[in-house]
Amino acid sequence: MNAFVAILRRDLRLAMRQGADSVMVVAFFIVTTTLFPFGVGPEVNILARIASGVIWVAALLAAMLSLERVFQTDYEDGTLELLTLSPAPLELLVLGKVCAHWLTTGLPLIMAAPIMAVMLNMDQNGFATLMIAMLIGTPALSLIGAIGAALILGARRGGVLVSLLVLPLYIPVLIFGAGAVEAALLGISAQAQLQIMGAILLLSLAAAPFATAHAIRQAVE
């Protein structure tokens, strides 16, 4: 457990010193969301109808773009090699890094989501569900995305590749995340969707660290 805290603290410190990363992710999220009214027109009804989907898609893309760097810099400067050689289990270290990634990108996205929901005229009774769904969904995005980020280490064209690998895996989270908000907007209970999202989160929590650690070991081999 010490190892988990150690790597989490170092990654948070790195993120704080480098600073820009979290801001960029949120900026990307806001800019992408802003594109939609230009694309479909500023009509309030249409925007309100597509708001939850747009926010989720933008969050998906933002999480994915930031993920590419999670292991890349560590891979390039030799840190990843030393992490696999440390006596701490690599799975735990992966979990620590993913956790740091979520705290620096997922959490700011959740904060920014209601602002975008207001701008897209989403109905008020969907807000709480949107936040809860994102709270459950974004850690799953970080966990699943970490597998893709580890698989592309050392590959040519890593950035484009990671989107091709990860986005199909994100579809269930998107479906149930947007579905939960939609249910809340219709005044139906979103419990079923949220529970399924919780199941997805638990499954990725159980499987993703192992798959990611495996991919990292291959990369440093």
């Binding site: 190892a3 400067d77 440390s86």
Partner: peptide, 23 residues
């Protein structure tokens, strides 16, 4: 290894701290 694994934004002490903690 060949690479020094030093993070440019962290101080020497902070760079070393992680490895001490992991051990």
């Amino acid at each position: 290894g060949h690479q020094d694994a030093i993070k440019p934004v962290l101080s020497v002490r902070d760079n070393l701290r992680l490895w001490a903690e992991l051990r």
